[in-house]
């Protein structure tokens, strides 16, 4: 039991404990803050494990950016300040699967490493990581940068409805009122969107009315035709007619032979004989 072990145990306890609060808290905002604590503790773990750069990046990116972004999202979705009632589903399946995963992984890892003593590596420096990133891993690094760019563009496109919006004939009217939350659209855009929505709503109403009228007419016509058909069937049953006529018209096997088409050629000759 070294100092490193003690530190790791403590930091691990903090990370797991606040993680528990992240997934159980009924306050959205508190969950975010517990996440900060948990991620910070993990950054501490990185430091103990000698990955300094990763630790600082963790603090910067996660604590500084990701969590803040999430808190913004919490704010923009108008989450209640107090506890929310409907944050959770029934716990049993989640607890079963989560507990199973945790138990399984823990058993696996404990069984793999036991209480083995490892030599603590020398604290890493930014130099080593930098050399590796720009040496051996430069291609994945570039690919990652493209991915980041794509994510950036995607996020912008997603959050700006006026970019690439198509007039969708099936789409209903936009929600009433100015768009909620963060989208600070200009007055012009809002007005245009509203005009579009109104036109679409009117057109849809027109189409719906026409369709309903056509259906009503068709139904009425159908009723009339059906009535006639029933009437006709009552008067002359076509099936019975076909069957009976065919029966009467069929040739009788034992009946008299058909009429001869011509006179028998032998008949006149008989007198000569």
């Amino acid at each position: 039991m070294t100092v490193a072990d003690a530190l790791m145990l403590a930091l691990g306890a903090i990370a797991v404990g606040s993680g528990v609060f992240v997934v159980t808290s009924t306050h959205l905002v508190r969950a975010g803050f517990y996440l900060v604590v948990s991620l910070g503790a993990i950054a501490g773990l990185y430091l103990v494990l000698g990955a300094e750069l990763v630790a600082w990046v963790q603090i910067l990116v996660y604590v500084g950016a990701v969590v803040v972004l999430m808190l913004f999202a919490v704010m923009l979705t108008r989450a209640p300040i107090g506890p929310s009632k409907d944050l959770d589903r029934p716990a049993l399946p989640a607890a079963l699967i989560g507990g199973g995963v945790g138990l399984g992984l823990t058993v696996l890892l404990v069984d793999a490493f036991r209480w083995t003593e490892f030599e603590l590596p020398p604290p890493g420096t930014g130099r080593r990581v930098g050399e590796q990133i720009f040496g051996a891993w430069v291609l994945p690094f570039e690919v990652l940068s493209i991915l980041l760019l794509a994510a950036l563009v995607g996020a912008i496109v997603l959050s700006r409805p006026d970019i690439g919006a198509r007039p969708d004939p099936n789409a209903g009217p936009e929600p009433e009122g100015p768009p909620p939350g963060p989208v600070d659209e200009s007055e012009e855009v809002v007005a245009r969107l509203q005009r579009i929505a109104e036109r679409q709503a009117a057109a849809q109403q027109r189409v719906r009315d026409q369709r309903a009228a056509a259906e009503r007419a068709e139904q009425a016509e159908l009723d009339v035709v059906e009535g006639e058909l029933v009437e006709e069937a009552r008067q002359t049953d076509p099936l019975a007619d076909v069957v009976l006529r065919a029966h009467e018209a069929r040739p009788k096997p034992g009946g008299p032979p058909p009429e001869p088409k011509r006179e028998l050629p032998g008949a006149p000759e008989r007198e000569e004989d």
Partner: peptide, 13 residues
Amino acid sequence: MHVVIPYVVAALL
């Protein structure tokens, strides 16, 4: 250093 500690922490997380 006992590496099993961060591993178990990771599993629990």
